[in-house]
Design a binder for these strands. Structure first.
Lengths: 342, 342
DNA sequence: TGTTAGCACTCAATGCCATCGAGTGCTAAC
DNA sequence: GTTAGCACTCGATGGCATTGAGTGCTAACA
C-alpha cells in the first residue's frame, strides 16, 4: 500500500498533535483540525491503514494512536515544515553567547546554556578532537624539583595542561629556552603529526632527549585518550524532567547517568565533519538508555581544520523543526564567535 | 524537661532506623531492638515526651514518628557513633584518586566521582578562591593581529586563560619578552596583591603601558568574578534520585536546577578555611530548594595559603557518620595528591 | 465507490466503599 | 515505674461500578 496525499496529511496532523500533548491522538481530534475536512470515521479508516503500515501504534484498544519511530523518520525527512527563528530570538541568543567571552571555555558554556534555554531540552557540546587541532604554543613551567607543568595552547585558544617529570638540574631558564625551541618547532603542526616533528627534534637536540621523550609521550597520551571530561559540556540536564515521559524516576535516573558519562556522550555526538544537521531518532542511537530519545547534532568550526559538535537530546516527540533551526543558527554563531580567537 | 539517658538511647535508635528505612518508626520496632529492653508501651510514653520537646514529629496520628531537624542536630553533635573506614576502602579510594592525575582538573574530577560513589550521594568540589593563590607564570601567546591569549599559571598547577587586546605591531617575540617581565615581577605574588605589583611594573615600563593595563584589568576581573563554572565540579547528580524523598519529580527537578547553578553552589560551600568537617542540616543552609537536604563539607589544601572545599549533599536522613569519615579521609588524600603539583 | 452516521464494544481512569493493619493514647493492673 | 489490654485513628489496599474517550464494523448515503 502506498501513502497518498491524504494519509500524509493525517499522519502529519497526528504527529504535530502528539508532539504538543504527549497524549494518544484520537480520530475526532484530527477531524476537528482545520485543513483535514473529513469525519472521524474516515480518519479512523486511514489511521487503521497507517497502523498496519507501521507508522502508528495503539497503547491499548480503546486509546488513540501514537506515532512510531518510523513515523518520526518520515516526518523529519518529508513532512516537517521548517520554522524560522524570529529576528528577536536570534538577537537574544547571540547576545547571551558573547556576554562572557573572555575564554573559549566560557563561550562554550554559554552556548550550552543558550541551547538548553532556547529549546527546553538538554544540550551537549563536544570540543573538537584534539588530534585535529594545531599547536600554537608550548610552555614548560617549573613546579617542583623534578616536575614541570606543560601547557599546550592549541588553535582556537584551547589550553591543555599536564604535569611531566623533568631531568634533575634544569632551572626555570632552561625550561624557558626548551619551551621556546618546542614552540618554534611544533607551532602550526597538527597535533596528529606531532610524533614526526618530535622525532626530528629529538635527533637534533641531543642533550634533553629524556625530557622531550616524556613530553612527547604525554602529548600522545592526550591524543589517544581522545579528550577529557572538560571537553564535553552539558546544559539543562534538569529540563527533561519537565516532560511526562520522564515522570518515572527510574527513567529519569538512567537518563541522568548517561549525561554523567562523558565518554558515552563523546562517542554519541562524535565529530561529524560537515555543517549539516544530523538527526538520530530513538533506536537509531545505540545507547539503550536513550532508546526513546532523539539526538540532533550540528557542528561548529574551530580554527581551519577542526570541527566540534553541538547537540540537543530530547524525547522522540521533540519539536524537531524548532530544534533544527536553533542548532543551525547556533552552529554558525558559535563558529563566528570562536573565529575571533583564531 | 531534661533528656535522660534512656531518652537519648531511644532517640538514637529512632534516628538510626529512620536513616536506613525512610519510614516513620513505631514503638514496637524500637522495643524489639537489642539494647533497649522496654515494652512498646514504655517507648510510646517516651516518644510522646520527645515529640513534645520537638525532637520527633508525626506525619499523621496513626503513623510512627519521624526525627525533626532538631533531632538530627542533637544526633550529629552528641549521639552519633563515629564509623571508621576499613583499610580496603581507604586503599580503593586512594587508588581511584591517583589513577588519572596528569592534570589538576582531572584529579579533582576523580575526587568528585570517588566521593559520590563512596557515599551514594551527590558530591561537589569547589576550587580555592583565585585571590588566595599565587602566580607562578604569566604567558602571552599571539592569537591574531591585535589579540593575544593570556595564560596565568597559579600555584598548584591551576591554569586560567583569557583573551586580551594588545597594541598593534607587537610580534611573537615582543609578547615573549613581555611575558618574561610579567612572570619575573609577578611570580610568587598572591593574586590579591597583584594590583600593587602591577602598579610598580607600570611605573617602570613606560612603553607597553596600554597592554599591561589591559592585562591587569583582566586579572582583576577574574578575581572579582570569584571564579567561573569550571571551578565547581559536581559528581553523582543522579544518585539522589535513588532515595524515596526524591521520587517526586518536581522535587528532583528543583534539586537538579540548584546543581546547575554553579554560583549558588560556590556560595553554599564557600571556602571555610579550617580542615574541620562542617555540617549544615536542612534549614541551616539558606537555599530553600535544599531545605530538606543536609550539606557536609570539608576542605583541602592547595599550595601554602589556599584551601578548597569538598562536600556532600544528601537528604537530611543521610548516613552522617559514613559521610563524615569519607570526607575527612578524602580531604587529606586530595591535599596529599595536590601537594605533588605544588 | 468513497464517505459518513450509528452503534456495540473495549478498557483505562475515576471514585466509592469496605477492609486491614500499623500505630497511638489511655487506663488499669502488676 | 512498667506493662498488658483495648478502643481509636487513619493511610493503604483492593474490589466494584461508573464514566468516557476511543475503536471497529455495518449499513445507508452521495
Amino acid at each position: 500500500m502506498q501513502l497518498d496525499e491524504r494519509k500524509y496529511r493525517i499522519l502529519q496532523a497526528i504527529i504535530d498533535d502528539y508532539i504538543m500533548t504527549a497524549m494518544p491522538v484520537g480520530s475526532r481530534t484530527i477531524s476537528r483540525k482545520a485543513g483535514v475536512g473529513f469525519s472521524p470515521a474516515t480518519i479512523r479508516n486511514e489511521m487503521s491503514d497507517l497502523e498496519e503500515l507501521g507508522y502508528l501504534a495503539q497503547p491499548h484498544t480503546s486509546a488513540g494512536r501514537v506515532p512510531s519511530y518510523k513515523a518520526y523518520r518520515l516526518y523529519v525527512d518529508h513532512l516537517m515544515k521548517t520554522a524560522k527563528l524570529t529576528h528577536d530570538e536570534r538577537e537574544q541568543m547571540h547576545e547571551h553567547l558573547v556576554s562572557r567571552s573572555k575564554q573559549v571555555e566560557g563561550v562554550i558554556r554559554s552556548a550550552a546554556s543558550v541551547l538548553s534555554d532556547a529549546t527546553k531540552y538538554t544540550s551537549v557540546i563536544v570540543a573538537p578532537k584534539l588530534g585535529t587541532l594545531r599547536i600554537r604554543h608550548v610552555q614548560l613551567v617549573p613546579v617542583a624539583e623534578r616536575t614541570a607543568l606543560m601547557i599546550i595552547v592549541t588553535s582556537a585558544g584551547i589550553v591543555k595542561d599536564a604535569v611531566i617529570r623533568v631531568p634533575e638540574g634544569l632551572d626555570a631558564d632552561d625550561l624557558y629556552s626548551i619551551s621556546r625551541i618546542l614552540t618554534q618547532r611544533l607551532a602550526d603542526q597538527p597535533l596528529e603529526g606531532v610524533r614526526q616533528a618530535f622525532a626530528d627534534l629529538l635527533r637534533d637536540a641531543e642533550q634533553n632527549r629524556r625530557l622531550l621523550g616524556e613530553a612527547l609521550q604525554v602529548i600522545e597520551q592526550r591524543l589517544e585518550a581522545g579528550g577529557d571530561a572538560s571537553d564535553v559540556i552539558v546544559g539543562g540536564s534538569a529540563n527533561l524532567l519537565e516532560y511526562p515521559e520522564y515522570s518515572d524516576v527510574n527513567k529519569a535516573r538512567s537518563f541522568l547517568s548517561v549525561l554523567e558519562s562523558k565518554d558515552t556522550l563523546r562517542r554519541l555526538l562524535g565529530s561529524q565533519g560537515s555543517m549539516e544537521v544530523t538527526i538520530r531518532i530513538g533506536p537509531e542511537n545505540q545507547v539503550p538508555e536513550l532508546s526513546d530519545c532523539s539526538i540532533i547534532t550540528a557542528s561548529y568550526r574551530v580554527g581551519d581544520h577542526s570541527t566540534g559538535t553541538l547537540g540537543i537530546i530530547g524525547p522522540t516527540r521533540m519539536n524537531y523543526n524548532r530544534v533544527i533551526s536553533v542548532l543551525d543558527f547556533m552552529g554558525r554563531a558559535l563558529s563566528d564567535v570562536l573565529a575571533e580567537y583564531k
